[in-house]
Simulated scan of single mutants.
Amino acid sequence: MNKVMSNKFIIGLYVIPALLLIMILIYIPIVLTGYYGLMKWDGIGQMTFIGLDNYTKLLSDQQFWKSTLHSFLLALFSALSLVGYLAVSLVLAAKIKGANLLRKIYLIPMLLSSVAIAQLWLKIYHPSNGLLNSFLISIGIDNPPAWLAEPHLVLGAIFVPIIWQYAGFYILIYYAALKNIPDSVIEAAKIDGASPWQIAYKIKLPLIAGVIKVTIVLAIVGSLKYFDLIYVMTGGGPNGASEVIASYMYKQAFASYNFGYGSAIGFALLLFCLLVTLLIRKLTATDEEIQY
């Protein structure tokens, strides 16, 4: 076996299929997206080369920058929600009664499709007979708001089901990381007189710092690319108040048949994700990783 694995030709045979798959699924589509962004094209007919016109158009497109702001607000909201997920995971990992049941309950939203979740929350937000407004009326609020129809409320209303949808995913990641910490480390801290708060803040969190960094990247980059639930619930409305980069890209490419401009938006989204990832890695970089 060692003789086979030391043969560079054999190693190349093992690596080439994976490289081809990565090229076909990732790198070639990225290059084509950037290329189509240089064209004026309706997605079907003849392409016309227009250079950087689509990209320069982005700089003066107010709706694009409005959508970008909404995407970054969602990313910020998602990153802040990780604090709550981590707190829940710390409680569950502390071997409280009913932790197994609660863990299964938190995972339920992950089993539902985004379309099903969107339909569920559309019923909750229904202005006349929705669950939320029915509750508000029952406590004496006569004219509850139309959550998905008012521009100043719709963005926050959309964020809630998105955060709810992915709660179980991040709680499960944190829970698994916390349970992987050796019991001997925690017991030693207790013998030294550390309080539960000190154990959580000074021992558990540093030991899972690498996992926390990964979840920050996943939450922020995933939020920047988010599309499906927003599109089903509001379609980016009213009047673009809940539009995000991905939904605006979809409308330009497939609703307005401006495929070249939609590709330019998609390529800009890719650059945003890369820049944010590099920035997060720079801000969270440490000289050494804690090993246990």
Rank of each mutant, 00 (worst) to 15 (best):
Y201T: 15
A194E: 02
I230F: 02
V244D: 15
L172A: 14
I191M: 12
D192T: 11
F227V: 07
V232I: 14
K190C: 12
I203R: 04
P196K: 01
E243N: 13
G236V: 01
I203N: 03
A200I: 06
S223E: 03
L218D: 12
K179T: 15
V244A: 05
Y166N: 09
I203V: 14
Q165E: 13
A194P: 05
A194F: 08
P182E: 08
A167P: 13
P161E: 06
I173A: 02
I199D: 00
Q165Y: 13
Q165V: 05
G210F: 03
E187M: 06
Y175F: 14
I220K: 01
K179Y: 06
K225E: 08
L207D: 02
N239T: 05
V211D: 04
F227R: 08
Q198W: 04
P182M: 03
V244I: 06
I216M: 13
I191P: 06
F159H: 01
K202C: 12
I208F: 00
F227Q: 08
I173R: 04
L229C: 08
F169W: 06
V160K: 01
G237K: 12
Q165D: 10
L172W: 12
Y174F: 15
V185H: 07
A241I: 15
K190A: 13
V244M: 09
L172H: 14
I216L: 14
V232K: 02
M233A: 10
K202V: 13
A188R: 03
G235S: 06
A219T: 12
A200M: 07
A176Q: 04
G193S: 07
G210H: 04
G168V: 04
